[in-house]
């Protein structure tokens, strides 16, 4: 059955993150906020980041989206927590390269590295990258 191919996309850890997302909600004391929309599907992601001493001291996301976008957001918040800004920006690039099927260092990405299989599902790449794009935009918001 061709549905078994979906195992590459929806690995258990991804389903777990989607069902029980980490850092889901809002921050009272965020320094950087952004709302990003995926215009093709109407999904919405709000990201609250608290930057302190050039580090991501806290982060939370809310909004609405598919399994992949929710899991990706949850994994992203785990991965970048307590990282300094430059490292987080490198991770944004590593994740993007990984999703586009390019060779890249994925160790630093933690659970987010399990989304590698998305590269075989071109229609879903935007779902996986939404949270990381939001992080990049939030960190660069003047």
């Amino acid at each position: 059955m061709a549905l078994s191919k979906m195992d590459n996309l929806y690995r258990q850890v991804i389903l777990d993150h989607s069902a029980h997302p980490h850092h889901h909600g809002k921050l009272d004391d965020s320094t950087n906020q952004i709302e990003l929309k995926n215009p093709t599907c109407g999904d919405v992601l709000q990201l609250d980041v608290k930057v302190k001493d050039n580090k991501i001291a806290d982060i939370a996301f809310s909004g609405y989206g598919c399994t992949i976008s929710q899991a990706s957001a949850s994994m992203m918040t785990d991965a970048v927590m307590n990282k300094d800004i430059d490292t987080a920006e490198d991770m944004v690039e590593d994740f993007s390269n990984m999703i586009l099927g390019e060779k890249t260092d994925t160790d630093i990405l933690d659970d987010a590295a399990t989304l590698k299989g998305v590269s075989q599902f071109p229609a879903r790449i935007k779902c996986a990258t939404l949270a990381w794009k939001a992080l990049h935009k939030a960190l660069n918001k003047k």
Binding site: L3, K5, M6, L9, C41, G65, C66, T67, A123, R124
Partner: peptide, 12 residues
């Protein structure tokens, strides 16, 4: 989410 459903259907 309908995107997840549509990916499942596409696999079929």
């Amino acid at each position: 989410h309908p995107h997840d459903l549509a990916t499942g259907l596409d696999m079929e």
